[in-house]
Design a binder for these strands. Structure first.
Lengths: 242, 242
DNA sequence: GCTTGACCTTGACGCTACGTCAGGGTTGGA
DNA sequence: TCCAACCCTGACGTAGCGTCAAGGTCAAGC
């Protein structure tokens, strides 16, 4: 007669594993001796070894019992089924590895290379890290909410760096984030931006749902709360006038 | 401001997922409105999307927070580390698939082909299913406890089928399992087996720890309890005489 | 004003296969 | 008699949420 430790050693598992199999009903509870110790016979050792043979092959515990008593045809079907499940998991993990490989740097985080290049160009132009992060977050939101408009938006943005006036405004925006909303410089910036919008009205393709983009910026800066409000108001007036 | 459902939809996850991230501290709890509802700003949406980008790539949740704030060098190191962990899992599952493929039939369960062939030959000779199962279990035990002696044991067993007397005894053993221990046929069988043992004493390489094998048989048959006892007694006397 | 359906809240169990204490009794050899 | 090594039950932890349960809130239609 074997104790639980001897049985476990025979099958190459831990004592906890044997008790777990009792708990889930995979291996029947044996008789107890006078002190309450479990006592196993040789058949239990054989049963446990057969269970481990399947478990070591990745068969879920819940299916092992049925498999041990299955006819060859059922057995083969179940094995095929389990093999397919294993393959699915492997495919999933392989996909994870592919994606992990794309995560070259923390900032990139699967943003297109052109966007990362644009962000770096912003840094070269003297933009603050805060502005770069804000811009990055806008791109992240856009990719999640409106991925179809990404290619055009990227082209527009890249082209904008070739226009000195746009670049100048961009840097002014960066500076203005910390201004008081009623700083007179804010009013001058609004005028400049309004003029710029009129000049570039042809390609004013708004995102589908601009609310989140706006709030992302507004959350960062009270001045920009006012700037966006005033600009929206003026644009509305223009449309009404027409 | 977004409700939890809107936030979840924005990032393509379930509400439960967002709450889970709050619970583990991955995403900070936002302000509540008058009725106790969570209210999120756009930054929360960006944060959640960044979290999911990593999670979708198989990064464990516990490591995501550190990764989001990591410098490029740390980030690259962590990514390499996580990639290696994924590869280990893939290798493990691949090994499972290899083993699963070996489980051609329930009876085989990774017993060597020669053993399965022997079991089938036993059936052909007229052995009962019970005897076949008993023999199979002995092989299973031997493979677990004393795999080194398997090849020789298999050769011996295979050869034994070519000896008519051994085969006759084997079938007699099968019959005897259900006999009463004091049936006179048991005594004649003991004499026959004793004579056989004497004739084959040269290759009596006992297994290292025969206890489990004996008990496997004894558990099945009271008659065999007596047979093994008597045979062991006689063998001991012979050794003493020498 | 009332109903109804969709949405929100917290709390808690379930899943997989055990690992790992905690707290306490049993055995066997020195 | 002591001590190490073993046994017992009970319960929490793991990873990442899914899925009730039981109840409050909101917005729209009647």
């Amino acid at each position: 007669m074997l104790t639980i430790g001897q049985l476990a050693a025979t099958a190459g598992v831990t004592v906890r594993t044997v008790r777990h199999y009792h708990h889930v009903g995979l291996l029947p509870e044996p008789e107890r001796d006078a002190s309450g110790y479990r006592r196993y016979n040789a058949q239990a050792a054989v049963d446990l070894i057969r269970i481990r043979t399947l478990a070591d092959a990745g068969v879920p515990l819940a299916r092992i019992d049925a498999l041990l008593h299955a006819q060859p045809a059922e057995f083969a079907a179940a094995v095929t089924d389990i093999d397919a499940a294993l393959q699915r998991k492997i495919d999933q993990l392989t996909e994870h590895r592919r994606r992990i490989a794309d995560l070259a740097s923390g900032e990139a985080l699967v943003l297109p290379h052109e966007v990362v290049a644009n962000l770096n160009r912003m840094r070269d132009l003297g933009a603050s890290e805060r502005m770069v992060r804000l811009e990055r977050d806008v791109w992240i939101l856009m990719q999640a909410l409106d991925p179809d408009s990404m290619p055009q938006a990227i082209r527009d943005k890249t082209a904008s760096f070739d226009d000195p006036e746009t670049t100048r405004l961009f840097l002014a925006i960066d500076q203005s984030l910390d201004w008081d909303p009623h700083d007179p410089r804010v009013d001058r910036l609004i005028d400049d931006l309004d003029a710029w919008e009129i000049a570039h009205e042809r390609d004013s393709s708004q995102p589908e749902n601009p609310t989140l983009f706006f709030s992302l910026i507004v959350e960062e800066s009270p001045a920009w709360q006012r700037i966006l409000d005033v600009l929206a108001h003026r644009a509305k007036q223009r449309r009404t006038a027409v």
